[in-house]
Amino acid sequence: MAATPGITDAEEAHVPNPVDRSTFTLYVNGTERTLTLDHRTTVLDALREHLGLTGAKKGCDHGQCGACTVLVDGRRANSCLLLAVAQEDAHITTVEGLAEGDRLHPLQRAFLERDALQCGYCTPGQICSAVGMLREAEDGFPSHATPRTALAGEGPAPLGADEIRERMSGNLCRCGAYPRIVDAIEDVAP
């Protein structure tokens, strides 16, 4: 901390809170995991540093890149912004939980075949995001790209390239694999 006028001195009295950690259960890729964690621990850090699941990536740690995307109770979320303690009893699916044994998830296969990745760092987040996104579209969730005239309650949202691009915009890819990512998702989308 700088000694800038008006900035608080970080050396102010530190009173350790007696209850700053908790024991709770997360269901990760179908497995019950009981953990005792600092309340500050995010789901992302719990996965990476406590459960050895490094598939979800830390790209920004602030919800600004999507590399940490996992599915929480089936819905995609930025795991870097979720406090693990607040997700007690949640079912979390990471990229490691998508394949069935040696059989890749169709999106994993499509990403490989379309070369929808380069450095691979955003890839787990892209794939988890795409899984969640396809579910959202199936459930009729609209997006910013959905035509105004598409009224609610008409079933699954059709997924053209523009829809996929908009819905996948929470996952940044600096290698610029976007066109291939859209192709891969189109291969799998109904």
């Binding site: 490691e96 490989l112 990745l117 890839t123």
Partner: peptide
């Protein structure tokens, strides 16, 4: 590629 799409590639 397979390691990257399954999350087993380690950085």
């Amino acid at each position: 590629g397979r390691d990257k799409v399954t999350g087993t590639a380690r950085y």
